[in-house]
Amino acid sequence: MSWLTPQVSAVLFAMFQALVILLVAVLLGAVMTVVERRLLGLWQDRYGPNRVGPFGSLQLVADMIKIFFKEDWIPPFADRKLFVLAPAIAMASLLLSFMIIPITPGWGIADLNIGLLFFLAMAGINVYAVLFGGWASGNKYALIGAMRASAQTLTYEVFMGLALMGVVALAGSFNMRDIVQAQEELWFIVPQFFGFATFLIAGIAVTHRHPFDQPEAEQELADGYHIEYSGMKFGMFFIGEYVGMVLVSALIVTLFFGGWQGPWLPPFVWFSLKTGFFLMLFVLIRASLPRPRYDRVMSFGWKVCLPLTLVNLLVTGAVVLLMAPE
């Protein structure tokens, strides 16, 4: 074992961590598809999928088998290259963002000093998945969905970044670990409540979750940008949406709810409990709120959320300047 120098073992451990986090993220996204259906059932006074295996626990396996063996059809009128590329972008950009999330003090893939900005960059790239997917499908519903998606995502990304800047100003760093450590005494939900509220809204909008699912809008657009996708390509879009949900939940926990911090229980348990809570909240929001009209979504973003984040940032900046030791 002479080759197992501390350096090599550190690299191996980092790779192991990365693999585990990647697998857990994808699996969690897949599991959420079933959990969401069960929870929606609970909140609509029905059961949801409970046939496959005990209490429907094997539903996920059944879905996976089905989606793997579906015909992977590419429409003859589609733009082949982009059609194949789009789901990969959807999945990859979201999974890359998991890199910056510190799960416990010892776990987490990259300790980037631009952590938060990296997430915003990946969220920016993620738009292309929808945009190219919708355009390459050669379908008018898909195109409308793609256009809605890109307009909505651009709108909400603007103040998503601004909502996070309050946190950055308080913590004095873009680094996620520094942000978590800055919340040792007080979670940022208290001083940054409006930042939290707007980030939650923006997070829902950017992942195209209800009630901001106009890009997909089953009832009007028949699934929007992924209408022509089938088989595993659709699966990547589908799981990607849930992975995005997990990602936004984890980010909210890290940025506003003290990450792994909490009394008595070990850090990992705290982190997963908090993340789980926000995943439930996402589903609850889907279960209760109707989809607003499209122009309302845009005007709400520009006329309510953007001014709110700007004022929030202004006040935060002023307070930070006043409190700063000279």
Binding site: A121, G124, I125, F132
Partner: peptide
């Protein structure tokens, strides 16, 4: 990061749009 956020993530989206 700014290059990706601003150019790749926002301006190019408008071009593609």
């Amino acid at each position: 990061a700014l290059e990706i956020i601003v150019y790749a993530g926002a301006i190019m989206v408008l071009f593609v749009f």
